[in-house]
């Protein structure tokens, strides 16, 4: 009898967590539209700038790797605080088939004055792209149905398994979430 109720309780706990597991949505229809990728050339490095159609394939890769995608901006204090944790993961888990992608939402007018100097100053090693698409009501729900639009936000995915986080991480939290995908 006790056993039976324990099962019910465990089931309930699982059910209460179910909305955290987000479905993966791949908008095939979008592929028809020409993707826009702008290359901003700088004497030191190039910054790739994407709109949503350009970004979409980068956050839906169909390979065997675990992908950690972080949406951030140089002016976003909680984003800047957690950046080193993503850098650590990029460094420590590279040989475990983990790829980190940092997607900057800095405004285009700040690419040369703020974003690039920031990347240089902090010597960021993860792959970084800039995202410039004003049609927020289209791409926010396309990236994740549960995203209200606040920064920072992070996606961890591998194949069809995908988790979305609209929150800041501590180093431990981020690593724990990543480990769910490494099993």
């Amino acid at each position: 009898m006790v056993m039976k109720y324990s099962v019910i309780i465990i089931l309930l706990i699982f059910m209460s967590c179910k909305n955290e597991t987000a479905k993966q949505e791949v908008a095939d229809a979008n592929n028809e539209k020409e993707q826009s990728v702008t290359q901003i050339t700088n004497s030191d490095f190039d910054l790739k700038v994407y709109d949503y159609d350009g970004l979409e394939p980068l956050i839906n890769k169909k390979d065997e790797k675990v992908h950690v995608v972080n949406f951030w901006a140089t002016w976003c204090a909680p984003c800047v605080k957690e950046l080193p944790y993503f850098e650590t993961i990029n460094k420590d888990y590279k040989d475990k088939d983990v790829e980190v992608l940092l997607v900057s939402l800095d405004f285009p007018r700040n690419y040369d004055t703020k974003l690039k100097p920031f990347i240089k100053k902090h010597d960021l090693k993860s792959e970084i792209v800039a995202f410039d698409d004003t049609d927020q009501n289209r791409w926010i729900p396309a990236i994740n149905e549960n995203w209200t639009g606040a920064l920072p936000a992070t996606i961890i995915y591998k194949g069809d398994k995908r988790q979305f986080y609209e929150k800041s991480f501590t180093k431990e939290e981020l690593e724990n979430e990543l480990k769910q995908f490494l099993k």
Partner: peptide, 10 residues
């Protein structure tokens, strides 16, 4: 209802 990008409330 629409989505808007913004800064998380601190």
């Amino acid at each position: 209802e629409t989505r808007a990008i913004g800064c998380s409330i601190k």
